[in-house]
Design a protein around this nucleic acid. Structure first.
Lengths: 208, 208, 208, 208
DNA sequence: ACCCACGGGACATCCCGTTATT
DNA sequence: AATAACGGGATGTCCCGTGGGT
């Protein structure tokens, strides 16, 4: 019936749990394309097949649903990228693979609508503290992951001694997010390609 | 009466023109913080002091007003930055000044709410073509300006022969936008500072 | 068109003022029969002929409208009773006339639904402070009026020296309100008649 | 577990019976403060600890529950007052005790929210016939009790021959209800005290 | 050129009640 | 006997936009 029916087979989930999961999963794309305010509960209803009563049983408010949808979306992104750095590869290889995959995502992003951090962040940074904190935490989570890789590279003497892991990680993230934004705006993946290439070159430089 | 009263003295403007200008100028901050959908005409009314009729006389719709407000905001940004590159400085100096000012804008942006290109772009890229085209044009305008500077630097043999002006311009813009986004999200200007510093180093590299 | 059109002729009222008056006047009966929570804005719409936009232009909320409707209703009651005590009659005559009219109102109350103080009071005393304060003020206003009459009677030596005006006024009001309540519940005016008769006797007693 | 657990020990009640009792007992205070329409099933759920299904198993509708809750509340009132007139005292003593207790109830009513007859009556007299009939019956029950006492007093020659039991009973009830209403509105027990004192005097008068 | 007044659709949320499940 | 899950209508309020009037 639902695209998420397989859950029931895999893990032992209660009926309500499945519904909740289904609602969240269906909402992700809507929120990530139309935005938080731009998405109405009617949109969610249309997408999920549930009625108001069925949705509000699982979420206290639109904000709550949006929060869980964001978490879900960020998780999907993590999973989509994890294959690139959750490996036994050398740190520089991890970063290289990460950037190659990022280029691939320019054409088909793991979450419809592009990067949820970018999308939600710009919308809520001045208006909604709960959601902003969530996005912030996600951004920090990503940053921490990246910092870790750069640190490994440094301790393994693959990267220069002078290299600053936090600086590099933040720089990589900023450039990447900006690239995603401009690629979406222009509907041209080349912005992403260009930025990825520059970052790839930079990684080589860090090894000298 | 209005903060924009000086317009009337400076140029010979009709009463309606002044009002229109006033409405646009007052709307910029609202749209740039609350977003296009997040801003209601009531917000505009509260900010401008005009009544609905007085606003709709000058703008056919909320969309039209938002469009003009965006143009106005982008123009303010241009003016705020123009002093850095509309000079007789050498290209590398222009870029350096540009990045130094960008760092300053981390603390106090020329337009309240941050970069209007970033804000509006992420909101409308999937939902509103009219506004998206406008943002796109603005981004292109900025890119063209930057490309021009890099080209100058190349023809003046200040930058390496191998340097690709379009690539560098786009890269600079992407990094900058990403930095603005993350600085706003974390409410920490250091993200902008870090990125600016890396870009400043890169400009030095381009000269070798 | 409206039952309140005559207002425009009598006093120079702005269009909006008339509409507001009309909405209030139409709402009174609805609120006073269905109650505050029991009345929906749709009921108001149905009764007034206005649409949501037209109503919310004049009232910030249902609560606000209810407040003004109550004031209007109380005022109508005052007017309906004023002929009995705003006279040059002797105090005891005033009270007598008041009670006679109260008996008449058992059959046809000046405000549809009965006494607005009674109705609103029992509904909001535990739930809505704004409205409760309003009803309280109205009850106090009425009490003050009655106390005044008893005081007159005392200073004019019509009533006994031992008579306590506040006590008598409050007693009269309590009995009256209770009588209205039970008459409405049983749909039998005799409860009101009985109480009025006892009170009339009591007034005679006070003169001895 | 529940405050009503003792029921199970005292009488042999089925599990369902206990639950029903518990739901009713818990609902009384809610209905009597928020009113019938003002009370939502969610309020009941919160108060009882039961889920919706668990409640609707015992009551066909919110109206049914409200009806039983009213009966329960009225019964509590009866019990609370019964000690004053279900005695071997003389009729005038019964009435005196009744009024003294009524004064005490001004400070702490036997049912939270005040007199259920007053509260429900004013809410439903124009809108809900089922509940209105219920309240009516309760009011009549109380009246019958009072009439009986006055009759006793008359046949025992304690009260004047000219005294009309029905008139006195109704008068006492009306005054009392009105006093409760105004005391609640003003949050001042003195209204009740005043009325009770007048009624006590009246009882003395009836004996002459 | 601008305000006042109004229409009517949309929105997030609440509400009562039913059905599936255990 | 009671919960969990869901349907779908109703509610108060907001919102964009349109005319009449001055």
């Amino acid at each position: 019936m639902f695209a998420t029916d397989w859950f029931q087979n895999r893990i032992n989930m209660a009926k309500g749990e499945i519904s909740k999961e289904h609602i969240i999963a269906s909402s992700v794309a809507v929120f990530n394309t139309k935005g938080y305010v731009g998405t109405s509960m009617s949109d969610i209803i249309a997408k999920t097949g549930f009625q108001k009563g069925g949705i509000y049983r699982h979420f206290a408010s639109k904000e709550q649903l949006a929060a869980e949808a964001f978490q879900y979306a960020y998780n999907q992104m993590k999973i989509a990228y994890s294959g690139t750095y959750d490996t036994t590869d050398a740190p520089d290889v991890k970063l290289t693979k990460f950037l190659i995959r990022m280029k691939a995502f320019m054409l088909k992003p793991p979450v419809k609508g592009g990067c949820p951090i970018l999308n939600l962040s710009t919308e809520v940074d001045d208006t909604n503290d709960l959601l902003r904190e969530l996005v912030k935490a996600a951004a920090l989570d990503w940053e921490t992951k990246m910092v870790q890789i750069y640190k490994e590279g440094k301790s393994q003497k693959i990267f220069k001694k002078s290299m600053d892991p936090v600086k590099e990680a933040r720089y990589l993230i900023c450039s990447t997010e900006g690239a995603i934004m401009l690629s979406k705006l222009h509907r041209d993946p080349n912005f992403g390609f260009t930025v990825a290439d520059v970052l790839l070159e930079r990684i080589k430089e860090l090894k000298k």
